[in-house]
Every structure is written in structure tokens, then in C-alpha cells.
Amino acid sequence: MAKVIFSSELQLLTGEDSVSIAATNYRDLVAELLLRYKKLSEGEILKMAVAIDGEVIPDPLLEPVPSNGEVHFLYRISGG
């Protein structure tokens, strides 16, 4: 089970700050989150950056998620 930790924006939609999800890759993990949280939309998720086990991955669609991995949704940074 991967542990998913939501940003404060997403917490408003999920109603909780974290959840454990059984998924082996990011695509399945997002599908599971969308099933679980009716208020959450794909657009909201795509707006966020993602860190898997601490490594920020800009667009992780095809990314594997380790079985005890930590997935953080965070505000997307771009910079000057």
C-alpha cells in the first residue's frame, strides 16, 4: 500500500490529509483516488506537482509507485 499525502488544497476536496492506496503505478493510483473522492477532479490533480518518495516528478503518469512508497501532492513550483 502506498501512502498518499494531500496538499491543503486537495484536503478541501478529500476531507482527509492522507490515505493508503493499493496501486503499483501513478496512473492506477489517480484512478483509485478519483473513484474514492467524488469532489476530486482529474484537473485538480494535474495542477499539482507530485513527489514519490521525496523525488519531485514533473509529469509522473507512467511512474511506478513502490509498495510502501510515499506519494505527496504539492503545489506546483515553476520559478523565475
Binding site: I5, S7, A51, D53, G54, E55, V56, E70, H72, F73, L74, Y75
Partner: peptide, 8 residues
Amino acid sequence: TIYGPQLK
């Protein structure tokens, strides 16, 4: 960190 992951 306050925003998410642990620092490397």
C-alpha cells in the same frame, strides 16, 4: 518539510 516530502 511543511509542504510535503522529506528533504534529500
